[in-house]
Amino acid sequence: MSSITNLDFFARRLSQRAALDEEDRAAVSALPFQHRYLNPSAYVVREGEPPRPHCSFVLSGLAFRHKLTVHGARQIVSIHLAGDLLDLQHLFLNIADHSVQALTELEVADIDRDALREMALERPAVGQALWIDGLVDASIYREWVLNVGRRDARARIAHILCEIAVRMHAAGVIDAADFHLPMTQEQLGDATGMTSVHVNRTLKALAKDGLIDHSGRWIAIQDWNKIRREGDFNPLYLHLDQVAPHLPGPLSSMFP
């Protein structure tokens, strides 16, 4: 989307999380914002800094959330795509406790933070929608902790590929089980607690076993049921009933 004049997309997104009436949707669409493009690796949020005067809503592209150790080791804790708010966590906090960067070229609507905070307090349905948005994010974080802490290498990679495919499908980015994954092997390693060499070997092993077709950064899931079992993937934690209720049928039918 090359230009926008209001936040109808954001209003529709919040309407998937809670029952907004016409006045709520109109008020959300009328929130003050600025349209902005960011280059890959550009920071949206920086750990240790006061939150910026806006909350960024993703219109297109991907971003990632991460934390750094004192020695500079990075842990990626989530991936974000079209329809996601990138810094809702800091709507009521004084200091950012993690960083968010653009993974690809990123198009965002920078929504005025004070106006969004005021609306969340004054319009209960909007506040509920934002609560649900934050709760879904927290659910995803918990699953990523489990992925890094308790699954083996094959399951970690299989799980993150399943999640990205399902979330891209839910956001309307893809309509089949193949997708461009704009993450380097180093970034995949930072998301799964693995070295880039181990990531490479694991991707090759999954391809050799017929679960995926892997060419550069292009991933095609060859057997959805097998990779789902390999990754111990249960989409319950994504709460798709409140994020993308329009999706038809069971997930296994989406990725034959």
Rank of each mutant, 00 (worst) to 15 (best):
S99C: 12
D223V: 01
A82R: 14
D178C: 08
L206G: 04
L31C: 00
N200A: 15
A109D: 00
D241G: 10
E143N: 15
A205F: 08
G72Q: 02
E23H: 15
F255N: 00
F92P: 01
L146S: 05
I76L: 12
F179E: 01
H159Y: 13
H246D: 14
G48Q: 02
A155E: 11
R154D: 11
Y237E: 02
L106Y: 06
H239W: 10
K226I: 04
M119K: 04
N147A: 13
V148Q: 15
L68H: 03
D112M: 05
R12P: 01
A138W: 15
W224V: 05
A42Y: 06
S252M: 01
P248Q: 05
R117M: 13
M1H: 05
G61H: 04
L121Y: 12
Q242S: 05
G149V: 03
L146A: 14
I212E: 02
S215V: 08
R13I: 11
G210Y: 03
W131M: 13
K226Q: 14
I174M: 01
P40G: 11
L206N: 00
Q222K: 11
E49W: 03
S15G: 13
V199C: 02
P235G: 09
Q101I: 09
F10L: 11
G172C: 11
E118L: 15
N147F: 04
S2K: 11
V77L: 08
T202A: 07
R12M: 08
P182N: 07
G61Q: 05
F233K: 01
G72K: 05
Q101C: 06
L59I: 11
G172S: 13
V197Q: 07
S2F: 08
A11F: 06
G231P: 02
K204F: 10
A155V: 03
A115F: 10
L116T: 07
M1I: 07
L38T: 00
L238W: 02
G231D: 02
R123L: 09
Q75C: 08
A115K: 07
C55H: 09
F9Y: 10
